[in-house]
């Protein structure tokens, strides 16, 4: 189950870089999560379809070409329909090409499995990545900026009048790392199999 027991972020600890960079607010986090899911699923499918024709010595280059093509497509779509978010995400959409989760799934799974299995694997890993990204975006935007999806929740609830203040640390990338650490901690204490001997 790539959703929890083999979650790409909390168990395999991959894709941390983008996870720190784009989760200060919920909206970019969701867009990023969807983009990565689409890319990893389609890349898995395509590579799996052509896996028998790829010469082993240049397989990484072939994988990169496929991933780059998909990322360029995603980038263009974002620019066309979600220009603001695409501005916010800036280089991180392009950096999906080097996202360890994508490369890792291609190497470890798609190269040796049937197209259908690979597609499912890609979707599963993308969702595992998404669930962490979206929860981080939720927590960080709520406590760091006092809003959700741009809607000023804390202001509407009248919390500022009561002396509440936004937490500046939440919008800094280190806090994302700490939160990931907390999620890993909770997951491991609930699931003893994950603990190293």
């Amino acid at each position: 189950m790539p959703f929890s027991r083999e979650n790409p972020i909390t168990v395999q600890v991959l894709g941390i870089c983008s996870c720190l960079a784009v989760t200060a607010q919920l909206k970019p986090a969701v867009v990023m999560a969807v983009s990565v899911t689409v890319v990893v699923a389609l890349a898995n499918l395509i590579i799996s379809l052509i896996r028998k024709t790829i010469p082993p010595r240049i397989r990484i280059i072939v994988q990169l070409v496929v991933v780059s093509m998909l990322v360029v497509l995603v980038d263009q779509v974002l620019k066309a329909y979600l220009y603001d978010v695409s501005k916010q995400l800036s280089v991180f959409v392009g950096l999906i090409i080097t996202n360890c989760i994508v490369m890792g799934r291609l190497e470890a799974f798609a190269m040796s499995h049937s197209p259908l299995e690979s597609l499912c694997d890609g979707v599963g890993n993308g969702l595992g990545y998404s669930v962490i990204l979206v929860s981080l975006g939720f927590i960080r935007e709520l406590f760091g900026s006092g809003s959700l999806w741009g809607y000023p929740v804390c202001e509407k609830l009248g919390l500022y009048a009561a002396g509440y203040e936004n937490n500046g640390l939440m919008v800094m990338p280190p806090m994302a790392l700490i939160l990931v650490g907390v999620i890993i901690w909770i997951q491991r204490s609930r699931n003893k199999d994950l603990q190293e001997k």
Binding site: E165, N167, G168, L169, M170, M172
Partner: peptide
């Protein structure tokens, strides 16, 4: 440090 970075 938490206070320092959270509520400067």
């Amino acid at each position: 440090a938490f206070l320092f970075f959270s509520y400067p």
